[in-house]
């Protein structure tokens, strides 16, 4: 780089640019936080949904599944599993309950987590709530 462009100028671009764009990020963050309630329907976050998120976290579900496309890519997307399973929380509960303890020979299988009925209902309600978030029409189709 030529002598016209000095190290001081480079430094000022770094500090100035970083400050400006960090402030822009903060502004966009504030705006996002103000419009999120209309998109995430937080009025529907019941105690059961809160418990469901805890069950989801305590069993590291994200270690195999994606949820709204984030997580591991080993097992199906669950952001829309409620609709994929015919808008049925019972179907979700039934699937989780029925996993064989020792897996399925030669195939991927979800572990048997031995969840209580309360926990099963909660995680199903959590996934139902998640499926109702406005995700800009993602995923592209029912298969996730």
């Amino acid at each position: 780089m030529s002598e016209v462009f000095t190290k001081t100028m480079a430094r000022n671009i770094f500090y100035g640019g970083t400050t400006f764009f960090f402030l822009l990020l903060l502004a966009l963050t504030f705006d996002t936080m103000s419009v999120l309630p209309e998109r995430d329907h937080r009025e529907n976050i019941t105690d059961q949904v809160i418990l469901g998120k805890k069950v989801w976290e305590d069993n590291n579900c994200i270690g195999c599944h994606t949820l709204l496309g984030e997580g591991a890519y080993f097992a199906p997307e669950l952001g829309n599993v409620y609709t994929r399973f015919g808008n049925s929380t019972d179907a979700i509960k039934g699937f989780i309950m029925s996993r064989p303890k020792d897996g399925i020979p030669g195939r991927r299988s979800m572990p048997q987590f031995n969840l209580s009925d309360e926990e099963l209902s909660a995680v199903a309600e959590f996934l139902k709530w998640t499926s109702e978030v406005n995700t800009a029409n993602w995923p592209p189709n029912i298969q996730g």
Binding site: A10, R11, G17, L25, L68, G69, T135, A136, W138
Partner: peptide, 28 residues
Amino acid sequence: KWLYVIIAMSLITGLIGMGHHYYWIGTP
């Protein structure tokens, strides 16, 4: 001088580049 320019570009593009994670997770 190079170092300043490179990291300036990293943060100028990367801070708002965070937006590419906010496409489909309920954010506007």
